[in-house]
């Protein structure tokens, strides 16, 4: 049974990765990262059940908190980006290169 959870989790995680490397919109990218974190959360909860310990749950909570903090920051970044260039395409922001 546990394998199923893990496989699902890894599928979600991989989807997140794909999103990060394929999408250019900042929002989508951050959503993909959220997806990856949620994949981890899924694994935490499942494994916590497996081991019958609460560590996994705690971790999941922590991850959620961190995700929220990062999301807050991400929103700030989005605003800044929009302010500077009016666009949210990550490719636009490639002044620093070479």
């Amino acid at each position: 049974m546990i394998q199923d959870y893990l496989i699902l989790s890894i599928i979600l995680f991989s989807l997140g990765i794909l999103g990060v490397i394929s999408r250019r919109n900042v929002f989508t990218v951050f959503m993909s990262i959220e997806l990856m974190l949620n994949a981890a959360n899924l694994a935490f909860i499942a494994l916590s059940r497996l081991h019958e310990s609460m560590d996994g749950h705690v971790l999941a909570m922590m991850v959620m908190a961190v995700a929220a903090a990062e999301a807050a920051l991400a929103l700030a970044v989005v605003i800044l980006l929009h302010k500077h260039k009016g666009k949210l395409d990550t490719n636009v922001f490639s002044l620093l290169r070479g």
Partner: peptide, 15 residues
């Protein structure tokens, strides 16, 4: 992105 890897890694190690 890397943080997500950390979280996932943590999950697997915990498992």
């Amino acid at each position: 992105f890397a943080g997500a890897f950390f979280a996932m890694g943590t999950a697997l190690l915990y498992g």
